[in-house]
Design a protein around this nucleic acid. Structure first.
Lengths: 139, 139
DNA sequence: TGATATTGTTGATATTATCAACTATATCAT
DNA sequence: ATGATATAGTTGATAATATCAACAATATCA
């Protein structure tokens, strides 16, 4: 049996997680990789709610609720009930959260750069379209 | 910030894990996804040892030791000390393990097919080389 | 208005991952 | 040959990630 494609992906993801963990540990915060992903999503999403994070990360809402709670307890974000829909809470950064975010964005960019080193645009485009097609195939 | 490539990969891996879990549950054994990956590696590796699995899965040896122990307790594999090096244990399938493997290989193949549906060889080749290059970049 | 759906929280638990300490065996340099 | 160092594997402790079910509050729709 020729080893399935997915194994190469497992290896890549493993390496990525380790790289990410090093960065996070280097900054010595009470955070893990999923917290960081949440922060990035909150930043990138207009009036982000917990449910937005659920959609974008494709994770269970229970998991997300806990990550958000942690981030609030750590004082990086706060939530306010939406005026249009009181079930929703809009997430936003505190001052210390914004400061943290700056650092994380810089780190993320650096990781992304080293990830893509030696690859040209055509390769990356093909890669991305294949990834998305595969996700679609499994939906 | 354009969302980093890795997010698309996270989504894909998540979908893959869910697909895999469905298949495994359908087989209704005391196994999880990592057990299944171990079995595949044992099958694909001549005189496979725990350390081979560690290398190929890029996981901690403690984690692998426990997965192997589970598989033995479930009666799917057995281990025998290598004659050349008594620290090593060669892993092999029991009869019921072989039977299980047949089913898992079929399932794996099916998943792999649906994963690659609608993608041509050139795309898949580029994809794989990019994945490997990225792994290399993070090493 | 009542039935149904959505958003988010919590409890319980399973799965996956990490690190350190340890045993046994092997290897290597002297 | 012996002692130092390295490797293979095990176990304990714990952290990180994920899943499912039950629930409260609010929204939507017939």
């Amino acid at each position: 049996m020729d080893t399935p494609i997915i194994n190469n992906l497992f290896t890549l993801m493993q390496r990525y997680r380790m790289t990410m963990r090093d960065v996070i540990n280097a900054n010595e915060l009470g955070l893990n990789a999923m917290h960081v992903r949440c922060l990035h999503i909150i930043e990138a999403t207009e009036a982000c709610t917990a449910n937005d994070i659920v959609q974008k990360m494709q994770r269970d809402k229970a998991q997300v609720a806990r990550l958000v709670k942690d981030l609030m307890n750590l004082g990086f974000i706060e939530k306010n009930a939406s005026k249009e829909d009181k079930r929703r809470f809009i997430l936003s950064f505190t001052e210390s959260g914004s400061a943290l975010l700056m650092k994380l964005l810089a780190a993320q960019k650096e990781i992304n750069n080293s990830l893509c080193k030696g690859l040209n645009k055509a390769q990356l485009d093909t890669f991305l379209s294949v990834v998305d097609k595969m996700s679609e195939n499994l939906k």
